[in-house]
């Protein structure tokens, strides 16, 4: 089963990198759905020999919420607000890929010295989850569209989920918390659609909305 876990981990990081380099919103959402789909199978691989009800619930929950519901809402959202792609990306495709690669390398380097309680089934889970979190954060930093930032956030959450899976037995509630977070994000997306927030916290200097703290 370790081979399957390794393969899933690599796929997850690959999808993350691809999302970072994609500027078409539809493409990003598709990639996210694919990533979540792969992620949903990891609990099965982890406890293949003794599958408990909790594993199945968790996996099904992830598949339904992240690979199904959230992409569906996002598609609906961008149709409704009619936005298609990033108009003014902060950094280009090439630079994104280089930064992303550096982050992945950094994640592997850092996680060498990270010791976890218990022996994880695969050595790749830890660095891959860290890389996913960092890449997700990178997306939030480099995108200007609200929906794209939400996707970055969701991707970070995927990374945390993967990390949590390696601690599955040691930390009981953390996974359930993750699912709650997903529901929160779904509500958040609704709010974006309903309020027609086209650009994330606008960038034009004349507007007050994007500036942090001044109105407080």
């Amino acid at each position: 089963m370790t081979a399957w876990i390794d393969a899933s981990c690599i796929l997850i990081v690959f999808f993350a990198l691809a999302m970072l380099a994609t500027h078409r919103l539809i493409g990003v959402i598709q990639l996210f759905a694919a990533q979540a789909f792969v992620l949903g199978f990891v609990p099965f691989f982890l406890h293949a020999h003794d599958l408990s009800g909790r594993d199945i619930t968790l996996a099904l929950g992830t598949l339904v919420l992240k690979a199904g519901l959230v992409p569906y809402i996002l598609f609906w959202a961008i149709r409704r607000v009619s936005m298609r792609s990033e108009i003014k990306p902060i950094i280009g495709v090439g630079a994104s890929l280089i930064f992303g690669a550096l982050l992945i390398a950094g994640a592997f380097w850092v996680s060498l010295s990270l010791k976890l309680p218990g022996k994880p089934l695969s050595d790749l889970i830890l660095p891959c989850s860290l890389a996913t979190v960092l890449l997700g954060f990178m997306i939030m930093v480099t995108r200007t569209l609200a929906v794209a930032q939400v996707l970055g956030y969701l991707m970070m959450e995927n990374g945390i989920f993967l990390f949590g899976l390696s601690l599955f037995d040691a930390m009981p509630v953390i996974m359930e918390m993750g699912i709650l977070l997903d529901i929160f994000v779904a509500v958040f997306i609704m709010a974006i659609v309903v309020n027609h927030i086209n650009e994330a916290f606008e960038r034009s200097p004349g507007s007050n909305r994007g500036k942090m703290g001044e109105s407080g």
Partner: peptide, 21 residues
């Protein structure tokens, strides 16, 4: 500090990101 440096959400996020790294 607010006026000179932290103006946009992205910049703000970037500071957190760099700090985290």
């Amino acid at each position: 500090i607010d006026i000179n440096r932290i103006r946009y959400t992205q910049t703000y996020l970037m500071y957190i990101f760099v700090f985290l790294l």
